[in-house]
Simulated assay, not measured.
Amino acid sequence: MGFGPQGFRNAPASKLLTYGTAAASLLTHYSRAHHRVGLTPRGLFARGELLSRWLTSQFAFTAPGEACVGLYLLYALRDVERVRGTKAHATRLLIAAVVSLGIQTLLCADTHLVRWLGLGGSSAGAFIQNFSAVGFAPGPHSLVAALLFPGFLATQPTTQTFTVAGVRFGDKVFTLLAGLRLFWSHGARSVVPALAGVCGSLVSEWAVTGRVGAVVTHRGGWTPPEWACASVRATLGRVLGVDVGGVGGGRRARGGRAAATVTRPRRMPRPRLDVRFGRLDDLAPAPPPPPGAVETLTSMGFDEHDARRALGMCGNDVEAATDALLADAR
């Protein structure tokens, strides 16, 4: 289920985020709850509204044009999940969402900090006029920013370039321009959540990979517990197109306990690499792929044999092999 030849194949987290945002936006529009969606200092302390404002302010667009651009970006950025793998991608998004929501809540709760930063107030020089009443713009601005920076820039290769007035641009510039247009849709009210999302994305990269740029700060990384992943697969797996075979009803092992069942991502159709690159028999043997390269491609749902072949054809370049596999799958 999805748009285009690939749709949301091997991208269930992106599918959940895109469809959830669309449902929240439609529900907010038809319930005429626009005034109770934005995260504001005044509404932050309103009785019984804190949780609803936390949720709706992060997922519900209130303007139709803004919703179209935002939903397009959420769909277009699904390839980031295919490169990273669903579990690592969902973990990054979860951490980024919590951090960005915490930053926005802190700014809403501490109006003195907002005035000191020059973000809000009633003065002519304030970036957000009447901040206590209007607050931040609703919608997943922070999540889109977390997907773009650095996820989209780091994982998606530039496949085509063009020149304008002597300056060369890559095809990724169109996605970035759409993101910048979304972030400026409400001025500073939407720019601040986007910047909070970038901060959350950097924190999530550190938490998952243990790196800050090229510096390794700790080994390993935080991942959600297996019982949480199994619960998501059991409840939302069929809707999202995830293989849920054996969840909750695994084979009985000795002693009466259910044996653990490994759920593998749905494999994509085998790409026709022979048509694209020629036969392997006619080529010189390729050097062995670097550690982790094959695992990166198989985590996206590709066949291990095809992953090794693509790496060999592309000189063990993971990004080029990913692009070739995706192109042949289409």
Rank of each mutant, 00 (worst) to 15 (best):
G187I: 08
Q156F: 10
L202Q: 10
H34Q: 13
L147D: 07
L236C: 13
I95D: 08
K15Q: 13
W206M: 12
N316A: 03
A293C: 06
A96I: 04
A97Q: 09
T175L: 14
W116A: 13
T223E: 12
V114E: 02
A145Q: 04
T322D: 08
A207V: 13
G4K: 01
W116P: 00
G121A: 03
R266W: 09
A137K: 01
G256C: 03
F174G: 03
A310V: 06
T163L: 06
V247N: 02
A329K: 09
L44F: 12
A321M: 02
A23K: 01
G210Y: 06
A46G: 12
A154T: 13
E49L: 10
A324H: 10
A178V: 03
D110A: 10
A126Q: 03
L107P: 02
L16Q: 02
L26G: 07
A230L: 14
A23N: 05
A88T: 14
V83M: 10
M300E: 15
G256I: 06
P287W: 06
S57T: 08
A286C: 06
H35L: 11
S122I: 14
A137G: 04
A228N: 03
G38Q: 13
P64I: 02
R36S: 15
T261A: 11
F61S: 02
L202S: 06
I103L: 11
G278C: 05
G315K: 03
E319M: 06
R47W: 13
G250I: 00
A310H: 01
H305A: 15
R32C: 10
A109F: 08
G166R: 04
P5Y: 05
F131V: 02
A88R: 11
L195K: 00
L107N: 03
L106K: 01
R115W: 05
G245R: 10
K15N: 10
P140I: 06
F127G: 12
R266H: 12
L27C: 09
A188L: 07
L51P: 10
A88H: 08
S185W: 11
T296I: 12
S142Q: 13
G102P: 02
A23Q: 04
